[in-house]
Nucleic acid binder design. Structure first.
Lengths: 220, 220
DNA sequence: GGATCACCTCCTTTCTAGGGAGCAACCCTT
DNA sequence: AAGGGTTGCTCCCTAGAAAGGAGGTGATCC
């Protein structure tokens, strides 16, 4: 285990990312479908991806968004045979495709790197558990507030009005992230706008008052 | 990565488990509380533990059950400072406490072991995602059926009547595993009993007809 | 430039799953 | 024998899913 804390646990893997093949995806393009062979990992250079689970009924749940400096498709390194998710870009996105064997052999040659990967994976577990707890205990208003807060902290861009969430999200995307109906998500978002807490436009959400938003999270 | 698939990804760590301190816990005893220092990992020799998240409102969500051959408290290895969960035993349980530093230094000396740990962690992620999807899409009847199926597969003991779920679970425990009210869980369980799919008694559930149970899972 | 089309956003109404409260009965433990 | 924990049952009521439109907006085509 590292004695020094790194900002991003994956920094230790940087040299590896240079070895991959860079691929440009357009907005909403599919990176992989569920069921296809799980044989590579992607490093996100710029842009964002949305990882979702497709239900048999056609409904979706967005399990995570990932942005620059993050990995996606890591299951390929951990015994996953076929993809379990649908991964799509949000906005134009530059990925580095890393073949599984390449990563595995690199990891063998750099044994200290595994511990960083473990930490990173643990972070993902914490995020999943947070979502789980939200689903179990909070109502839509509160789930949306928490999600907006997370998004502004992870992908936020400071502007004069507040923190702009830096990825191209529709209300449907948001709804699928908090497991609610699109209509109710719109409603909740409008309420937040009326209260002057957020500002919104097409594909655009600005958190104007972070403190009020935090207060909203407790209520539900 | 291993070229041969092991049944239990943790088999590779067996030699490590001999180095720990064995501790006997009685039924329902607390192994650790949320907030305490996260400085050791536990290996389960016999018995079961319940990992739950405590909400500020006093409600609980059971994130996982773990049984013999499994680990609990693994966050200690991955940068977690304080425990995030409440861990309690179900029935009398024998744990092996492993100091964090002990495990970390062992892992450094056995670099090939990390990949097994990664695989194990990935399994846990898959389980969390399954729970998440259930919460998002399925109703109580279906969530309960899936959970019983999982439990019977993971902790089941063959008997003449069917598969007995081998841990001391109350209806409240079950309810907290599928994020529903205790009353509704009892109701759903009674329905399954009336249909002849399960058999139950105090702390005791026997899955009589696995096939019917599987059919129940699809419906919701 | 204007028309078209696909998607996105907004709003309302209806209907139901299931949370919550409140008890009664039961049974194991001490 | 008492008491705490577990189970069974009922009723009420709210959150929110589902359906069904109507207007907006941006891209693309002519």
């Amino acid at each position: 285990m590292p004695s020094v804390q790194l900002k991003n646990p994956l920094e230790a893997l940087e040299p590896l990312f240079a070895k991959g093949e860079r691929e440009l995806y357009r907005d909403r393009e599919v990176v992989y479908y569920p069921g296809v062979a799980s044989d590579s990992v992607f490093y996100i250079e710029t842009g964002h991806v949305k990882i979702s689970y497709l239900d048999t009924s056609g409904k979706r749940l967005v399990l995570a968004l990932r942005g620059p400096g993050d990995l996606v498709g890591e299951g390929a390194l951990m015994g996953e045979e076929r993809r379990r998710h649908l991964v799509q870009t949000l906005g134009d996105t530059l990925l580095v495709r890393l073949d599984r064997e390449l990563v595995v052999s690199w990891l063998r040659r750099h044994p200290e790197a595994s511990s960083y990967l473990l930490r990173w994976l643990h972070e993902k577990i914490v995020e999943l558990e947070e979502l789980l707890v939200d689903l179990a205990f909070r109502d839509i208003q509160s789930r949306l507030s928490r999600k907006l807060l997370q998004l502004s902290q992870e992908f936020g861009v400071r502007t004069e009005d507040g923190v702009l969430i830096g990825c191209r999200l529709t209300h449907k995307d948001l709804a699928e992230m908090i497991a609610s109906a699109r209509e109710n998500t719109t409603l909740a978002l409008n309420r937040l706008e009326q209260e002057g807490i957020v500002d919104k436009g097409r594909y655009r959400i600005v958190v104007k008052n972070e403190e009020s938003l935090k207060r909203k999270c407790q209520v539900g």
